[in-house]
């Protein structure tokens, strides 16, 4: 199986942001993109098939887990070159400005991407032209294996956007309602021509950086302290939101259990089908290098 960077633990960020987007708004993502795609209205079966590198995958098995595309869902692409898609979202926002189509572009980046110069170039230009783009930085405290204290002088990432005059937020990324509140405001600012907005969402990945192997907690490659992982487990965004829903009588625990059961079946079915699906035909290796001109 191809390298897989699981999103487990960070779900509230994607869900809280994408619930305010229209189907034709654009998102650009990174190596940890599965959650972004699903939250934007992606197709679970196409995603899982892609993780298995099958022809039925959303990128026909040519991209794998790190290159998730679904133009109909507004998932414009994801790439593991750290910070590589920030400028692409900038260009999509520039296109929206020129066409006056009122779309918003999102770039999802990690704390590691703050080490790349293109972030600052893009912040400057987005602010200069007040482009409709939201920089969503998921600060999960680790850049691959390195804790944030070893890569940055300050762990307050949201402050990097302030010198550019960009509106910034720092939010509890494991609280879906808190993320949703800042996202709602950010999206409407962008639609009013008052972008860009920078959101730092504090969160934590419950798995290692990349799997299959390193996604299993406790393997030698995931060197994060066990106690730290357990502390974050208590702040799991799904458990927190379920608790909120039940305590505020939005729904019952039984209703949530039903949803979980349905989802579990859906996921198992997607994996089962993906395992049965065909791999791309090796005779078609050269297909898709160039698009045939229309």
């Amino acid at each position: 199986m191809c390298p897989v960077h699981l999103y487990t633990g960070q779900e509230a960020v994607a869900a809280g942001i994408c619930c305010h987007l229209n189907p034709d708004d654009y998102i650009f993502s990174n190596h940890r993109s599965h959650g972004h795609y699903l939250a934007k209205g992606g197709d679970l079966k196409k995603l899982i098939a892609e993780v298995y590198c099958k022809e039925k995958g959303c990128s026909r098995g040519r991209g794998g887990s790190m290159h998730v595309y679904d133009l109909e869902a507004g998932m414009m692409g994801s790439a593991p070159i750290v910070a590589g898609t920030i400028s692409l979202a900038l260009g999509a926002a520039l296109a929206s400005r020129i066409r006056k189509d009122n779309r918003v572009s999102i770039t999802f980046l990690g704390d590691g991407a703050t080490g790349e110069g293109v972030l600052y170039e893009s912040l400057n230009y987005a602010a200069l032209k007040k482009l409709p783009i939201i920089f969503v930085c998921e600060n999960n405290y680790y850049s691959t294996h390195l804790p944030i204290s070893e890569i940055r002088v300050s762990d307050q990432i949201y402050k990097v956007a302030q010198p550019f005059g960009v509106k910034t937020h720092r939010v509890d990324g494991n609280d879906v309602l808190a993320v949703s509140d800042v996202a709602r405001e950010a999206v409407s600012l962008c639609r009013e021509g008052q972008g860009p907005v920078f959101i730092e969402a504090m969160t934590y990945r419950m798995r290692g950086h990349v799997g299959p192997d390193d996604n299993i907690q406790g393997t030698h490659t995931d060197i994060r302290p066990k106690e730290e992982i357990e502390q974050w487990r208590l702040k799991d965004p799904l458990t927190r939101f379920e608790k909120y829903l039940v305590e505020n009588n939005v729904c019952t625990q039984a209703y949530l259990s039903d949803i979980q059961e349905c989802l579990q079946k859906e996921i198992e079915e997607a994996h089962h089908e993906a395992c049965q699906d065909a791999f791309p035909d090796s005779k078609e290796i050269a297909k898709y290098v160039f698009r045939e001109n229309t």
Partner: peptide, 12 residues
């Protein structure tokens, strides 16, 4: 960033 922006604009 500006070349990337051109790529992003082309993608959309």
């Amino acid at each position: 960033a500006m070349t990337g922006a051109a790529v992003g604009a082309a993608i959309v």
